[in-house]
């Protein structure tokens, strides 16, 4: 079944951006990530295609400033999927290769013209010093 036009348009925008963008369905399954996001994920969309939420959510360990593991419920994308609201947070991610990176994540819900919740977008930023 084809995706809603709002998801398709978000993908097309993401495809044109130089910032990492992840697009999920309402369950958190990863539908698309763009080339800059491939660097963060360490995988290529061409190779993986869509990824189930259990699969891609384990790629990172999310930690706070003190090195404590962040519970999923505190992550912007998870909050967006739960509450259908935009969120923003800066935290640390550690890849499976053990590489740690400070990252800011902005997430927003995709709510279509009909008001239907269709999925979410997470934009990853490398934060400049505040």
């Amino acid at each position: 079944m084809a995706y809603a036009i709002e998801l398709i348009l978000n993908r097309q925008i993401a495809d044109c951006l130089a910032i990492p963008v992840f697009i999920t369905d309402t369950e958190g399954n990863l539908l698309f990530y763009n080339e800059p996001a491939e660097e963060i994920l360490g995988k290529r969309y061409e190779d993986t295609g869509e990824m189930a939420v259990d699969e891609w959510s384990t790629v990172f360990k999310n930690k706070d400033e003190n090195g404590e593991v962040l519970p999923p419920a505190e992550l912007p994308l998870v909050k967006t999927l739960t509450n259908q609201q935009p969120y923003h947070k800066t935290f640390w991610i550690e890849s499976l290769q053990g590489r740690a990176e400070r990252i800011s994540v902005t997430s927003y819900p995709i709510i279509g013209r009909s008001g239907k919740f269709l999925g979410a977008v997470a934009i990853f930023w490398r934060p400049t010093e505040e």
Binding site: M1, A2, Y3, I5, I8, L9, R11, Q12, D15, C16, F32
Partner: peptide
């Protein structure tokens, strides 16, 4: 075909394909 690469060949990502 709107987008960087024109028509996406995966019909799930093709507007109106259903």
């Amino acid at each position: 075909a709107l987008g960087r690469d024109g028509l996406l060949h995966d019909v799930k990502w093709l507007s109106g394909s259903d």
